[in-house]
Amino acid sequence: MGAFFNMVRRDLNLAFRQGMDSLMVVAFFVIAVVLFPFGVGPEPNTLARIAAGTIWVAALLASMLSLERLFQTDYEDGSLELMALAPIPLEVTVLAKVTAHWLTTGLPLLVTAPLLAVLMQLPDDGFWVLMAALALGTPTLSFIGAVGAALVLGSRRGGVLLSLLVLPLYIPVLIFGVSAVEAAIGDLTVRPHLLILAGLMVGAVALTPWASAAALRQAVE
């Protein structure tokens, strides 16, 4: 347990010292959403109709863009090999690194989302549900993304490849994230959607560290 928190603290320290990285993810998130009114026109009803979908898709893309630095720098400077040799299981290391990754990207996205919801004229009923859905959904994105990030280590054109591998696997989170908000706006029951999102998250926490660790092991072999 101590090793877990040490690893989280180390990654958080590195993220804060590099500073701009998580801000850039947030900036991307905001800009990507702000582009949509230019694309579909500023009419409030149209915007309200697509608000939930737009915010979710932008969150998906933003969280994907930040994946590359999850393992890449440790892979390049050799820390990853030491982590693989360390007495703590590599699965726990992955868990810690993904936790730190979510704290530096998923959480800022969550904090920015209300601002975007206002800009996109999201109806008030959907507001809190959007926050809850994002809080349950973004950790799943980080966990699934970690598998992709571990797989592409050392490949040519890792960034483009990563999007090809990870985005199809993100689809369930997107579907239930958006349908939760739409259910809230349409006065339907929200609970099942949120429960499924929570289930996806629990499944991802339990299963993906094994896959990520397997991918990391063959990367440092």
Binding site: V147, L151, V152, S155, R156, A211, A215, Q218
Partner: peptide, 21 residues
């Protein structure tokens, strides 16, 4: 993913993990 590595054995292993995921 299979074709993205210079080392063919790595491409095979990485894509095997991906197929299972």
């Amino acid at each position: 993913l299979q074709g993205a590595f210079d080392d063919r054995a790595r491409g095979a292993k990485a894509s095997a993990v991906l197929a299972l995921v």
